Simulated assay, not measured.
Amino acid sequence: MEFDSIWIALGIAVAGYFIGNGLKNFKNPDTKGISEIFDEDDEHELIKENDVHHFMGISKEDVKYLIQEHPDIPHILIKDKVYFPKAKLRKWLTNLGE
Rank of each mutant, 00 (worst) to 15 (best):
Met1Ala: 13
Phe3Gly: 12
Phe3Lys: 15
Asp4Ile: 10
Asp4Met: 12
Ser5Trp: 04
Trp7Phe: 12
Ile8Pro: 01
Gly11Ile: 05
Ile12Pro: 00
Ala13Leu: 10
Val14Asp: 07
Val14Arg: 07
Val14Asn: 06
Ala15Ile: 11
Ala15Phe: 11
Ala15Asn: 12
Tyr17Thr: 06
Tyr17Ile: 11
Phe18Ser: 01
Phe18Ala: 01
Phe18Leu: 11
Ile19Gly: 00
Ile19Asp: 01
Gly20Asn: 10
Gly20Ser: 13
Gly20Trp: 06
Gly22Cys: 09
Gly22His: 07
Lys24Gly: 05
Lys27Thr: 15
Lys27Phe: 15
Lys27Ala: 14
Asn28Gly: 00
Asn28Ser: 09
Asn28Trp: 03
Pro29Val: 07
Pro29Lys: 02
Gly33Tyr: 02
Gly33Arg: 05
Gly33Thr: 09
Ile34Trp: 05
Ser35Thr: 10
Glu36Asp: 08
Ile37His: 03
Ile37Cys: 06
Asp41Trp: 04
Asp42Glu: 09
Glu43Tyr: 01
Glu43Arg: 06
Glu45Pro: 03
Leu46Trp: 07
Leu46Cys: 05
Leu46Phe: 12
Ile47Asp: 01
Asn50Tyr: 11
Asn50Ile: 12
Asn50Lys: 14
Asp51Leu: 04
Asp51Lys: 09
Asp51Cys: 03
His54Met: 11
His54Gln: 13
His54Trp: 10
His54Cys: 08
Phe55Met: 09
Ile58Asp: 03
Lys60Val: 07
Glu61Thr: 08
Glu61Gly: 07
Glu61Asn: 11
Glu61Leu: 08
Val63Pro: 03
Val63Glu: 00
Lys64Gly: 00
Tyr65Asp: 15
Tyr65Ala: 08
Leu66Trp: 03
Gln68Asp: 15
Glu69Asp: 14
His70Tyr: 13
Pro71Ile: 05
Pro71Met: 07
Pro71Cys: 05
Ile73Asp: 00
Pro74Arg: 03
His75Asn: 07
His75Met: 00
His75Gln: 06
His75Asp: 04
His75Phe: 02
Ile78Met: 14
Ile78Val: 14
Ile78Ser: 15
Ile78His: 15
Ile78Asp: 15
Lys79Thr: 14
Lys81Cys: 05
Lys81Ser: 11
Val82Met: 03
Tyr83Ile: 04
Pro85Ile: 00
Pro85Tyr: 00
Lys86Trp: 06
Lys86Phe: 05
Lys86Pro: 03
Lys86Leu: 08
Lys88Gly: 02
Lys88Gln: 15
Lys88Asp: 15
Leu89Asn: 01
Arg90Tyr: 02
Arg90Thr: 04
Trp92Tyr: 08
Leu93Lys: 09
Leu93Cys: 12
Thr94Arg: 08
Thr94Cys: 02
Thr94His: 08
Thr94Gln: 10
Asn95Ile: 04
Asn95Met: 09
Leu96Val: 04
Gly97Lys: 13
Glu98Leu: 08
Glu98Met: 09
Glu98Gly: 06
